[in-house]
Write a protein that binds this DNA or RNA. Structure first.
Lengths: 149, 149
DNA sequence: GTGCTTGCAAATCGTTTGCAATAGC
DNA sequence: GCTATTGCAAACGATTTGCAAGCAC
């Protein structure tokens, strides 16, 4: 549970990442990319907006929604549809598992989680299927919520 | 991919299942339970309503939503939050994987899919976590959609 | 200067809720 | 008869869209 904060990135590095992904550079995009690459706590759009707004007074919630979607489409983050209330964003695009606590709502990375082997598809009559994304989610109650019962 | 239709169930059997789960019996509940236990093609609420309405002219979409949620809460079906547009319902409550095709939108069961072992949690610093549900989803393109490119 | 991005306001749409009428037991 | 369920209409809330103004290059 110590992977929530990543090393800080300079504006220069962030601009380069945006350009590498054929995205125009802008102030909101730099701020959003920095946030999503440095905060691995699976925020929803509203949370990102809430956290960035103080330092970016003209930022709108619309831009947060549209830009995070754009980032996801371009492989800069992934969208977690772990429950039906919100979409959560994850700057860690490597396949890994998640645990959502139904008590406190927090989402934890499952450390060292092994994703099932997609090649098994072809051993099971699913030839011709192409995998783009893998998601592995658990739901339950976390250690802290279990203590507070 | 041959698990979509299950053996038919009598009204009597369905009533018994409802009572076993401490749910009051009613005509809409019988119809909905029959549908969800005989149609393993992961319908969304709208689809269930569309299919049942002709034979149940007074059935409302509200009842479909509320009853499917009730069933899920009582272990009679599970809710798949595989994308952010709709919730899909699955009458097969055994843990198994799903593949959603981003082309045609269909959801396939992954036959023989092995769910990751939840006991690994405790080998990875997540002691005290209790697992209620496991979900394993893939997204990509299915064989038919790949042929039509 | 041209085109892409932003942000406001309004629309969208899946889902839930309030409540009076009705069905179950 | 009393309680639980249904279904309509309205509300809700997260997300998307239209469009005029502003920024990137």
């Amino acid at each position: 549970m110590d992977t929530m904060f990543q090393p800080s990135l300079s504006d220069c590095q962030l601009k380069e990442i945006l350009r590498d992904h054929n995205l125009t550079v802008s102030q909101p995009r730099i701020a959003l990319l920095r946030y999503i690459m440095q905060n691995y706590h699976h925020p929803k759009a509203e949370t990102v907006f809430h956290d960035l707004r103080p330092d970016n007074p003209t930022l709108s919630l619309t831009t947060v929604y549209n830009t995070l979607r754009l980032f996801a489409e371009n492989g800069l983050c992934s969208m977690l549809t772990i429950d039906d209330k919100h979409v959560y964003y994850d700057g860690d695009t490597k396949p890994h598992g998640h645990f959502m606590c139904v008590g406190c709502g927090r989402i934890f990375d499952i450390p060292g989680s092994i994703m099932p082997n997609a090649s098994k598809l072809h051993e099971n009559g699913m030839d011709g299927f192409q995998v783009h994304e893998m998601h592995y989610y658990l739901k339950g109650t976390c250690n802290e919520c279990n203590e507070n019962i």
